[in-house]
Design a protein around this nucleic acid. Structure first.
Lengths: 117, 117
DNA sequence: TTACCTGGTTACCTGAAGGTAACCATTACT
DNA sequence: AGTAATGGTTACCTTCAGGTAACCAGGTAA
């Protein structure tokens, strides 16, 4: 990785790869949820519900299930008084770390540009 | 940028930043179009139409307009025989380069994992 | 004058993504 | 018996993003 070549074939492959990535990362909330799990390594259902502004428990449940299917997150049930469920990124999901960091940096700049100025 | 701090406040800010970024980058085709413009610096309308598999001219037109409004892309009309229109990323849009590269890398891995194995 | 190329626009319609809100199972406290 | 907290599920409904397909306008050229 790192160095991008510039043959026509490589362009196509890269464009396709981005498309493939977005197939998994679509959905209104997916990226935001991954971001939450990037910045807090472990997080409970109700925590994520609070972190991601505007999401409903229904949608959070749905998205987490789908992300679990895609092997992006791991679900762990803890046998506490009222049951608690921990979500965390899998090793695979953690590879999106740099995507999220870059998005975060860009988002900060974007916010400055839109709000400030 | 680069080093992420870990106070509660910073988490919130980062999560918010990612959310802000996604506000602009939502839409089924946005990221794919940006990818095309990352990998070919300049591209005509009909080229992008061919590069992004499945998109219709209507949607491409809409998305490009929106991206222009958001100052992500620049539109240049060339006074050729049948008119040609060039699209390219603005300096601002080019800052998404690393996001796209990371997504491309991840997409390649993802494809291997899903297809291969 | 018919047809083709460009880069779109317009009207119309549909499906699925997502919202709302009520409900559920378990345990525990009072 | 009632209530609270956990982490969901279910049913129902609505919106709008996006698809399809036809059309447009300027220029070319046979």
């Amino acid at each position: 990785m790192a160095d991008k070549k510039h043959s026509h074939e490589d362009c196509k492959k890269n464009i396709l790869a981005v498309h493939d990535a977005m197939d998994v990362l679509n959905g209104k909330w997916t990226i935001s949820i991954i971001a939450v799990l990037c910045f807090h390594q472990q997080r409970r259902f109700s925590d994520i519900l609070a972190d991601v502004k505007g999401i409903s428990n229904r949608m959070l449940s749905k998205e987490l299930k789908e992300m679990e299917m895609h092997k992006l997150v791991k679900r762990t049930v803890q046998d506490t008084q009222p049951i608690t469920v921990l979500y965390e990124l899998t090793e695979y999901g953690r590879k999106l770390q740099s995507v999220i960091n870059n998005l975060s940096d860009w988002g900060h700049e974007h916010r400055k540009k839109v709000m400030g100025k």
